[in-house]
């Protein structure tokens, strides 16, 4: 056992600075050009109506986007521009009416705390696994004063993953009501934020904001752990303002 611990100390892997860049193939934010005659093809290729045509240009609804790469593929197939996923600018985070927050929130990181309750409202569990990864030694979320708590009664922030299913609608409402004021809600991932992943079915209510008021949206399917951390720190800032 001590030999193992010694090896762990020696392999020099330590908690990292949070970086918003990813590996070369990572499908992050969508950038680049798309000829106007290809716009409609992209919109058609998009499985969740996230690729939207506005006049001669496109706009991505990041709340819904699955970062699946189908729009990029459509442009490449038709040689209609250089639309691509950025691997540097991994994922933006949206606050209320679509204002983007950036990594700036990482800079002033002291003097706050945030207690988070996770709620799986109907996820595929990938978002939840990524939340679990936040506590590993690479990300070590606790160093920012953010902690996961066992009950909504102890929480400042409700972190919702997954599209709200009919079977969990009541649990989501009750958890929200059980939280003390001031409280915030974060819709984490394309399901909770955009609600389009599976389309409309008899068993789905929709995005989280159909059931409870949402303050922050984190795009991604699933969002990368670094994106979640940026979002959590922004939430801590918002909470401070409300106090």
């Amino acid at each position: 056992m001590f030999k193992v611990l010694e090896r762990i100390f020696k392999d020099k892997i330590a908690t990292e600075q949070i970086a918003l860049t990813g590996s070369d193939r990572l499908r992050g934010k969508i950038e680049g050009s798309c000829n106007s005659d290809c716009l409609n093809k992209c919109a058609k290729a998009c499985p969740v109506k996230a690729f939207q045509v506005e006049g001669n240009d496109y706009k991505i609804d990041y709340k819904k986007c699955l970062f699946c790469g189908k729009c990029v593929e459509a442009v490449a197939e038709n040689a209609a521009g250089d639309l691509h996923h950025s691997s540097n600018d991994v994922m933006p985070m949206l606050i209320e009416a679509g204002v983007e927050a950036t990594a700036d929130v990482l800079k002033n990181k002291l003097g706050r705390s945030l207690h988070v309750r996770h709620l799986d409202a109907g996820s595929c569990n990938a978002c939840d696994f990524e939340m679990g990864a936040l506590s590993n030694s690479y990300y070590d979320l606790h160093r920012y004063g953010v902690a996961f708590v066992a009950s909504p009664r102890h929480a400042d922030l409700l972190m919702v993953t997954g599209v709200v299913s009919r079977n969990l609608e009541q649990a989501l409402k009750m958890s929200y009501e059980a939280m003390p004021e001031p409280k915030l809600v974060m819709a984490c991932g394309a399901c909770a934020a955009g609600g389009e992943t599976y389309g409309d079915t008899y068993a789905i209510v929709g995005a989280a904001d159909k059931v409870v008021p949402v303050d922050l949206y984190v795009p991604g399917c699933p969002p990368r752990p670094s994106a979640m951390i940026v979002a959590l720190l922004a939430a801590a800032d918002m909470l401070k303002e409300q106090m």
């Binding site: 996820s123 997954g162 299913s165 992943t197 599976y198 079915t201 008899y202 068993a203």
Partner: peptide, 23 residues
């Protein structure tokens, strides 16, 4: 169980396999 039931088997009905893939 079945709290996260999303009706996926119904959701893919009427889609081609390519269209259903993301689901």
């Amino acid at each position: 169980l079945f709290f996260t039931h999303r009706g996926i088997e119904k959701a893919v009905e009427g889609k081609t396999p390519d269209e259903a893939l993301h689901i």
